[in-house]
Design a protein around this nucleic acid. Structure first.
Lengths: 115, 115
DNA sequence: CCAATACTTAAGTGTGTGCTTAACCAATCG
DNA sequence: CGATTGGTTAAGCACACACTTAAGTATTGG
């Protein structure tokens, strides 16, 4: 749900704001060009995703960023990169092998037995 | 657009698949539980976001992952973390200052002048 | 106690998204 | 050639999404 939560520009703005420290719902809503209920709906999505936590004290709900949750995205990205680099390594191995074959058996680019 | 592109599970699957190397449209579609046009639509979103590039040779379109484009997400995440840590630093400074005041002037937790 | 503040809930609306089927086009194969 | 493969285009449909306004509920300050 984290990717979905971050797919909306308004929600990313809210996350950016919360990166600078906790804030109340109306503080978050103030700079945004939409009604307060709309902001609350965004906050619900963010909270459901685990990116934001909040607690109500008196009549004011204070929201904070759950930085740890950013790992979800980070990890996914990292995994893609790792897979990609492993692929390049294998490609390198393949080319090395080809080069070896070329030296021992020029013009034949496979490893199959000769009949 | 990158965040939006990655918000869909099917598109993330496609990116994961392309992480292991380039693939044709039908290769990408084969394991997915939907029609080929649906997959093509996902590929269009991914291509518009810059995460995927493709070129057609003969009648087969080969798609590849643009790993570099993952930086967009990575950078945003990193920036959030940096902001967060700067905030914690400032909080640390504030607490240090308080501790200093506590030692020189116990019971007064502000820095204002005594009248 | 009354009014203002800080949300909260509910209901409705236009638009976007993910998918479908059907028809089509172009390259390749027997 | 005609059939198959690989992909594209178009139209339509159901549901999700980002909002809105209106009406509520607590909490708090005067």
């Amino acid at each position: 749900m984290v990717f979905h939560a971050l797919s909306d520009p308004t929600r990313r703005l809210i996350v950016e704001r919360l990166g600078q420290g906790a804030a109340s719902v109306s503080e978050l809503a103030a700079p945004l060009p939409m009604s307060l209920p709309a902001v609350v709906q965004h906050l619900q999505v963010l909270e459901a995703s685990g990116l934001v936590a909040s607690e109500k004290v008196g009549r004011v709900r204070t929201c904070r960023l759950v930085v740890k949750r950013l790992d979800t995205v980070q990890d996914w990205i990292d995994e893609r990169r790792r897979t990609w680099e492993r692929r390049l390594d294998r490609l390198g191995d393949f080319l090395d092998e080809q080069a070896r074959n070329d030296r021992t058996n020029p013009t034949n680019h496979t490893t199959e037995e000769q009949s």
